[in-house]
Design a protein around this nucleic acid. Sequence first.
DNA 1: TACTTCTTGTGAACCATTTCACATGGCTTC
DNA 2: GAAGCCATGTGAAATGGTTCACAAGAAGTA
Lengths: 219, 219
Amino acid sequence: MSPASVKKRISESTIHRLSLYYRTLSLLEKENYETVSSKELAKREKLTPAQVRKDLSFFGSFGTRGLGYNVNELKKKIETILGINREWRVALIGVGNIGSALVSYKEFAKQGFDIVKLFDNDQRKIGSNHKGIIVSDIKNLEKEIQEANISMVILAVPATVAQYIVDDVVKAGVTAILNFAPINLRVPPYVHLRNENMAMELEYLSFAMVNNHSPKKTK
Amino acid sequence: MSPASVKKRISESTIHRLSLYYRTLSLLEKENYETVSSKELAKREKLTPAQVRKDLSFFGSFGTRGLGYNVNELKKKIETILGINREWRVALIGVGNIGSALVSYKEFAKQGFDIVKLFDNDQRKIGSNHKGIIVSDIKNLEKEIQEANISMVILAVPATVAQYIVDDVVKAGVTAILNFAPINLRVPPYVHLRNENMAMELEYLSFAMVNNHSPKKTK
DNA sequence: TACTTCTTGTGAACCATTTCACATGGCTTC
DNA sequence: GAAGCCATGTGAAATGGTTCACAAGAAGTA
Ligand SMILES: NC(=O)c1ccc[n+]([C@@H]2O[C@H](COP(=O)([O-])OP(=O)(O)OC[C@H]3O[C@@H](n4cnc5c(N)ncnc54)[C@H](O)[C@@H]3O)[C@@H](O)[C@H]2O)c1
Ligand SMILES: NC(=O)c1ccc[n+]([C@@H]2O[C@H](COP(=O)([O-])OP(=O)(O)OC[C@H]3O[C@@H](n4cnc5c(N)ncnc54)[C@H](O)[C@@H]3O)[C@@H](O)[C@H]2O)c1
C-alpha cells in the first residue's frame, strides 16, 4: 500500500492507462457491471492483468481479493487520481478549423474540462458567438484569463505565432497548455505542456506499413 | 552499422523522435544550415545527444565524425525510414467537426498524406464539395476505396458506429487506420491502428497539475 | 469452523530503453 | 604529413517499465 502522500515517480504510460481504465469503467457502469477483475479490465485494453494491478497499486489498494474491483468505486478513485472530479476552466485560443471543432465537442465538458473563453485576433471572429461563448480579442488575453480564473489553455493557432502567445499565456499565470501547433514551444519548468501532433501519428502508420512493423499496443 | 535489411525491433519512442528530428531538420534547412550535430539536434528537442545518435544508429550511420550530419541528407534518410518520401492515398470517413478541420489542413498533403476521398452517411453532406473533393456515400465504401487505391483511413465518426465502419474498411483491404473516436477498436493483427485521443492529453495535464508532476518530456 | 475458490497486491525477475564513456576516424591547421 | 580537434557510432552500464509468481485475504460452502 502506497498512500497518495508518498511521492513516487509515476510513468506517463501509467497515467495514459488510467485514462483508458476510466473510459472502460464508464462503459462497464452503463452495462450495469457491479465489479470487474483485473483480468477482465486487461482483456478490454489488451494489457496483462498484472499491468492493471500494478498501475493501480501505485495509488492504493482499491480491490477486494477474490472478487475484483467495484466498478463505480474504482471509477471515482481514478477520477480523483487524474484530478477530473472537479471543473477545470479552460480557454481556447485560435478559433479556426481545429479550434471550432474542439469548441463543439461536448465530451470535454462532461469530463470536467469547461471551455469558458475563446480568443482570436481576426476581427471577423472577435465578437462572434460559438456555442454560447463570445470570441474575445487576443489583446485582452491576460486580463480576461485572470478574470475568468482560467487554469488551462488549448492552443490552436498557427505555428508561427504559437510561441508569442504561449509567452503571454504563461505571463497570465496559466500552468497547463495543450498545444496543437507542430512546433517545440519553450515554457518555464513549472508549466505543464502537452503536444497533440496528428502528423506524427500518420508518420507512425507510414513507418509501420513500410516496415511491416507489428505494433504491440496502440499508444 | 545496422543496415535497414536487418530486422530489429524499433521502439515506438524512437519512431516518434524521428518525426521530431524530421520536423526540426526541415526548419534547419530553411535556416540554411548545412550540417547539424547530435548535440544541436538534442538541444532543440530537449533530449540527450546520445539519444539522437542511438536512434539514428538503428538505421545506419549517416553522420561524419568531427562534423555532424548533413541536414538535407539526413532529412531525406528519415523520409525514407518513415516512408514519407512517397504519396499515401488517404480516405477520411466522417466529414463532421473534426473531419472538416482535417480536410482543410494542408500540411498533411505536404508530407505525402493525400486525402483523396471523403465518406459520410448524412444525405446533406453526400455530394457536397470539400476542398475540391466530393463527399461519397458510405454505402459505396468498399468499391470506391478499392477503385481509388486507398491504403490509409482517417476515422472521424461517432464512437457508436466506429467499429462497424472499421470492419468494412478492413474488408476493403485498408491496413492503416488513424482513429479519432474514443473507443477501443478491434482489428486483425495485420492492420495498423493508431488512436488519437485528445481527452487523454487533457487528463494528463489535469493529473500533472493536481500532483505537481514534473514532466520529463512532452510526448 | 474448516475448506475451497478466486483474485488482489507486491517483491523479484525479467526485459527494454536510455545514458555513459570512449575508441574511431574525418577534417583542419601548421 | 603529423598533431590536434571534434563529433560520431556503439558496446556496456544504468535506469525504468513490465511481467512473473505467490502469499494472503475475502467470499462462499458445507
Ligand atoms: N486543421 C487541422 O486539422 C490541424 C491538424 C493538425 C494540426 N493543426 C495545427 O493547429 C493549428 C490551427 O490549425 P487550423 O487548421 O485550425 O488553422 P486556422 O488558420 O483555421 O486557425 C487558426 C486560428 O488562429 C487565429 N490566429 C492567428 N493568429 C492569431 C493570434 N496572433 N492570436 C490569436 N489568434 C490567432 C486565426 O484567426 C484562426 O482563427 C495550426 O498550428 C495547425 O498546424 C491543425
Ligand atoms: N470534435 C472534436 O473536437 C473531437 C475531439 C476528440 C474526439 N472527437 C471524436 O471524433 C469523432 C467525430 O467527432 P465530431 O465532433 O467531428 O462529430 P460530428 O458529429 O461533427 O461528425 C461525425 C460525422 O460522422 C458522420 N457519420 C455518422 N455516422 C456515420 C456512418 N455510419 N457512416 C459514415 N459517416 C457517419 C456524421 O454524418 C458526421 O458528419 C467522434 O468519435 C468524437 O468523439 C472529436
